[in-house]
Amino acid sequence: MLPNLPIPGLNLPAKPILLLIAFYLAIWFAGKEADRLGIDGNEVWNIGFYALIIASVVARLGYIVQHWSVYSGNVAAIISLQGGTFYWQAGLIAAALFAGSYIAWKKLPSLKLADALAGGVALFLPFYSLGNLAAGDAYGLPTTMPWGIRLWGATRQPTQIYLFLATALLFAIVFWRRKRAGDGMQALWLTVGYALSRLLVDGWRAGSAVWGNGYRQSQVISLLVLVLALTLLIVKLPAGEES
């Protein structure tokens, strides 16, 4: 675990910095992929930049709405930014809606763009797992396995490392088959691979939100996404790619 970067005199949190670097690399790689597929790479930078701004603004508004009883009596505090006062789920949904609308408005080739963005997302995901490892987030259940890691008062399943390995493999696959990208299959393969990874790895996660009789929300959602993406993949799969 390395919650802060080991820079003397500075107290910089490792995870947000890793995520920022990963975001930049992801947009850069997706832009390169877009150029290769015949789309202006600047469009990817536009989508990434505006999506980040929209996600931040909506996440902030979402937090204010959530805690309206607090802000209604202190309107000036609405513009007083503070770490931890963002509702990122709302921000992510808004960013996705913006990206979809931008693609439709600019009449960009959506399947090619989806494949270009898939390359960027595939590059981002292993960094995300490393960030979780550094911060001690997304930790596993206690285990007696010899490869367990000591974290939060117990020897635990190294779920962050499992997901890092799975997503690094996914990036390798996406990178290897990128010459065949352009028909939306890269994005579908990535979705299948990531949903499968989360379905498996989250089975060893602690601290998960659950539904019903102890079923982890993330696993249920992953299974639904996996089956849906697999169905789409099979419907679209060219005969030669079946194997």
């Binding site: 939060w152 060893w204 601290g207 939100a209 659950v210 982890r216 299974l223």
Partner: peptide, 16 residues
Amino acid sequence: WLQISRIHSAAGVVSG
């Protein structure tokens, strides 16, 4: 896998 890996004492694991 959902069934095998489900959380048996939900309250304990959810709250860490």
